[in-house]
Computed example of a mutant assay.
Amino acid sequence: MSQYWELLASRSDDQHTSEELEMTAYRLAVEQVLYYADRHSRTAYWMIERYEREFRQALVPLGIDVQVNRQLRYAYALPKHAKAGTASIAQTVFALVLRAIYDEAASIGQLTEGGEVLCDLVELAEKYRLMSGKELPTKGKLDSLMETMKRWGIAKKSEDHGLDDGEDMAGQPYAVVIRPAIADVLGEAALARLVQFKAVASANDEPEAVTSVAEEGESQE
């Protein structure tokens, strides 16, 4: 595989080294989504955007499909054979609620120029209760869930997004920025799971592991 990246590097007119290209492929496989809007991912995005076919060919043997959204400028990787057991019920429910909020906002044109949706904590708590039948997790658990969403590339806190605190925050510590790749990572069919979770909602989160977010995205095919 090193020869593969060396050959690609030679075609880049010395703009990228084989190590940079190989590391970018690794990052995409691990992080799942790389956004041009994120300063630390801009060079990686441009490499994938320029050599999309080559990155796709490199990751196909690993069962990973590579796609690039050039309009909103992000690249994402979807495992074709994701295994169950990589996400907890709490993580899965939270991700599905964010996807539903994103779809609702998108349907009425409430997207930023970057295709993102801003949701304050008051609205999030209300939507979470209506959609899941549970109360929004308290601060410690919510912060942990947001870290997971950030790692999956589907949402992050406004404070991590470089947004300034202002009057729109209405005294809240942060707003949730739901990122556009959530529509790719979590397929339409995945939203039906919210009904199942709501039907069996309980006061306490279960530690049981469930289907991964990546597998939820696969189910849309």
Rank of each mutant, 00 (worst) to 15 (best):
N204K: 14
D65V: 11
R50M: 14
K157I: 03
A106H: 05
D14C: 13
M1L: 03
M169N: 06
T148Y: 13
L124C: 02
A106L: 04
M23E: 14
S212D: 10
Y36S: 08
I48R: 11
T92N: 06
F94Y: 07
E52P: 09
M169C: 00
N69C: 10
I101Y: 07
Y35C: 12
W152C: 03
K150R: 11
G162R: 00
R99G: 04
L111Q: 08
Q110W: 01
Q91C: 05
P180H: 00
L78W: 06
S219M: 14
M169L: 01
Y174I: 01
S219G: 14
V213Q: 13
A155T: 15
Q57I: 12
E123W: 00
V30C: 09
L62A: 14
A9C: 00
A87H: 07
L62W: 09
Y74W: 02
K141H: 13
A190D: 12
S10T: 06
K80H: 04
P137C: 00
A183L: 05
L136C: 02
A87T: 08
E116Y: 10
V97I: 11
T24S: 13
V213W: 10
A82V: 04
L8N: 06
M149K: 05
L186G: 00
M1G: 03
A155I: 10
Q15F: 03
A82W: 02
H81K: 13
A44L: 05
T86N: 08
S18I: 03
Y76W: 14
N204R: 14
M1R: 04
T211E: 15
D164K: 08
A214Y: 05
L34W: 01
E218M: 08
A90L: 10
V68R: 03
R193A: 14
R179T: 10
H40Q: 07
A175S: 02
P137D: 02
P173F: 00
K141Q: 11
Y4P: 11
D168T: 03
I48S: 09
Q91H: 10
R129S: 15
D205M: 06
A37G: 02
Y102T: 12
A58I: 11
E19V: 09
L145G: 04
E188M: 05
S144T: 14
Q15T: 07
R151D: 10
Q91T: 15
L163D: 04
A75N: 02
